[in-house]
Design a protein around this nucleic acid. Structure first.
Lengths: 331, 331
DNA sequence: TTGAAAGCGTTACCAA
DNA sequence: TTGGTAACGCTTTCAA
């Protein structure tokens, strides 16, 4: 690889001049500029980012920490982040945390060791020291804490919405699939659902699930209908679980939505391809990722952001695992 | 951030000694070792990877370039790669290429500028200069070229397999969804399917698709049944398209697999959650990612690899969008 | 067993 | 308008 010295020599100038020209900082004569340009072309020179980073103590790298890219909710998020970063010429060091604190810590450490200028993280430990001690901007994504920079959606309202809609459509023996206890958004949804169900005096059962994995989802779906065969409405903790529940209901010969209604959460791309297509509470994953990146960049560039926490709207994506709302007829 | 000088001062030794101790290269007395350890603890010192990378002209970073992480086939691949890298203490700079040469080039350039030690790429341009000129190891993933390091599966055999199985199960008016022309594996599948169909003298129609996107998939599914309503067997270019076809077939009131059989490709996790669950040609995505990372690491560490191209097996994942094989009764 | 110093490829200050 | 040079934080050589 050619270095700045090579370019300087080739152009018959000093490295200082080449640097000035590359970074457009300070004077450089038109003629010298030409010569340097030629030299750069001929030598295929591109600046060594590592050397730059060392001197300036900052890079064009950012860190992105997600629980598990294999969970279909996260690729959309990641894509939003990447698109925005790429547009602004930032690069991403990516890691999966598996919601594991030690792994997370390890990644944060190497992010710092590599001089990243900012971090986006979907962490369950936003209040831990490992984040507090960082002296670079951090944006929490699909998570939030106090007044710290974050992009998330209102899980509680989402849960309420799911319960409300399924109740309005006539389910009276609801089962709520409660997501992993240590995952904040999952709890928010659960609490919201419980709250709205309670307000309506609707009895409900709870199936506790401990992960969002595909393989486990089927197990819980089976457990659901074994333990609560009378269920006529399911509020799932996310679309994967909902898909598993739908699959199991159909396997048992139940009619969806006539016998059982199902509401998912997230609106992953495949939800609309299920048959019947899945009614769900939508989070705008791509936009959330994009917003997080955009916010981080503003932070990195020291722009003033008056509102560091961005709450994105959840919306009811009405499809075919729910019946038409009875309530609507009364309007 | 504490530097090695701070540690040295704090421990009353020279930076050279600290360095020797950290890297376990050369002598350091037990007593000094103790002192240094204490200093490191107290100052929370971790070595600056950027400085290391600059001096050694190599880092612990690798580059990973995928077409689109939002396509459900790739998260599994990525996870395989990440797990193996993480286990070996390598980090990943990640980018989406969108099968776009310019974008790809840009990423490769920044990979190099950041001193990555190796690259994993699912490229459509393995033979282009941008790869040839690289002087760090590259592993092609889900792609291959000549005898160059790569991990892929036999798309052609996969296509043949899909055709064979669907034919054995009685489809006689097959429609093949032909994936994007510029994507090699998609073409291989197509050609394999055409070949096997031809051998059996089965007539077939072709629907040309130009992307693997969710939004387009529905369009092609509709086109399929409008143009070829007599179709009794569909070989899809991947599971997304297959899911869309299944959805559309059901919407049209067709019975699957009685009226139409459908075979997908990839075996993305959601395939088994469809109803009926999707019969597909499975690629072991996670293992492919893992194998690619493992191969790249061996290359980085200059181990001798006698067989740089690794072909992973495709397998027939028989599920419920196909009928039971007639052929089996004859055994 | 230890330390001084050169060097990795840049940038930025200051003098010319 | 240009160039010499120190500095960024580390590793490695060589001499002590």
């Amino acid at each position: 690889m050619a270095t700045i010295r090579d370019v300087a020599k080739h152009a018959g100038v000093s490295v200082a001049t080449v640097s000035r020209m590359i970074n457009d900082t300070g004077y450089v004569h038109e003629d010298t500029r030409k010569k340097i340009e030629t030299a750069i072309k001929e030598l295929h020179y591109t600046p060594n980012e590592v050397a730059r980073s060392l001197y300036k103590r900052k890079s064009r790298l950012t860190g992105l920490l997600l629980p598990d890219i294999a969970n279909p909710f996260f690729p959309e998020l990641a894509r939003g982040v990447e698109d925005e970063m790429q547009r602004n010429e930032f690069r991403i060091i990516f890691g999966n945390s598996d919601e594991n604190k030690a792994k997370e810590k390890e990644y944060l450490q190497t992010f710092v060791q590599n001089n990243v200028v900012g971090i986006i993280s979907s962490t369950n430990f936003p209040d831990s020291d490992m984040y507090r001690k960082l002296n670079i901007p951090v944006v929490f994504l699909d998570r939030t804490a106090d007044n710290r920079p974050s992009v998330y959606s209102d899980g509680r309202e989402g849960g309420r919405m799911a319960a409300r809609e399924i109740a309005d459509r006539g389910s009276r023996r609801v089962t709520v699939m409660r997501g992993p206890r240590h995952i904040r958004p999952a709890q928010d949804r659960y609490e919201g659902a419980v709250e709205a169900l309670g307000e309506r005096g609707i009895v409900f059962n709870v199936i506790q699930t401990s992960s969002f994995s595909f393989t486990d989802a089927g197990t819980w779906a089976r457990e659901l209908f074994e333990r609560h065969p009378e269920t006529d409405g399911v509020i799932a903790s996310n679309d994967i679980v909902a898909a598993a529940v739908l699959h199991e209901a159909l396997r048992l010969g139940k009619k969806v939505p006539e016998d059982v209604q199902i509401v998912g959460f997230d609106d992953i791309p495949l939800s609309r391809l299920l048959t019947p297509s899945l009614t769900t509470i939508r989070q705008p994953a791509y936009d959330m990722g994009k917003a997080a990146a955009s916010l981080l960049i503003r932070l990195i560039e020291n722009e003033i952001v008056d509102e560091p926490t961005i709450q994105m709207p959840v919306t009811f994506a009405e499809r075919d695992t729910t019946r038409k709302a009875e309530i609507e007829w009364q309007k």
